[in-house]
Amino acid sequence: MTHLDLGDLGRIGVTLDVRADGGHLDDAAMLESLGYSTIWIAGGQLATLDPLRDVIRATEKIPVGSAIIPAWGYTPEDVIALHRSLDAPGRLITGLGGAHGDRPLHTMNAYLDTLDAADPPVPPGARMLSALGPRMLELSRDRAAGAIPLLVTPEYTAQARQILGAEATLAVMEYVVLESDPQLARNTVREPIGFLTGVGGYPQNLRRMGFTDEDITGTSDRLLDSLVAWGDIDTIAARVTSHLDAGADQVVLVVRPTDPNTVPHTEWRALAEALIR
Rank of each mutant, 00 (worst) to 15 (best):
T2E: 03
G7I: 13
G7P: 05
L9A: 15
D17P: 06
A20P: 09
G23P: 05
G23C: 09
H24V: 12
H24K: 10
A28K: 05
L31C: 04
E32C: 11
T38D: 05
I39T: 02
G44N: 12
A47N: 13
T48A: 11
L52I: 09
T59M: 08
P63I: 12
S66M: 04
W72S: 11
E77V: 11
I80R: 03
R84F: 00
A88M: 05
G95H: 03
A99W: 02
M108I: 06
D113E: 13
L115A: 04
D116C: 11
V122E: 09
G133K: 14
D142P: 06
A144H: 03
A144T: 08
A144E: 02
A145K: 10
A147D: 00
A147W: 01
P149H: 03
P149V: 09
P149W: 06
P149E: 07
L151C: 10
V152P: 03
T153V: 13
P154H: 05
T157R: 07
A158L: 09
R161G: 04
Q162V: 13
I163V: 15
I163D: 00
T169H: 01
A171I: 12
V172D: 13
V177T: 06
D181P: 00
P182A: 10
A185P: 04
T188I: 11
F195L: 14
F195N: 12
L196G: 07
G198V: 06
G198H: 13
G198Y: 04
G200T: 03
Q204S: 14
E214R: 05
I216Y: 03
T217V: 11
G218N: 06
L223N: 01
L224K: 01
D225A: 01
L227Y: 03
A229G: 09
W230C: 00
W230S: 04
W230R: 00
I233V: 15
D234V: 12
S242D: 13
D245A: 11
V252N: 11
V254W: 11
R256S: 14
P257E: 07
D259N: 15
T266R: 15
R269E: 11
R269V: 12
R269Q: 14
L271M: 02
A272E: 08
E273Y: 04
I276E: 06
R277H: 14
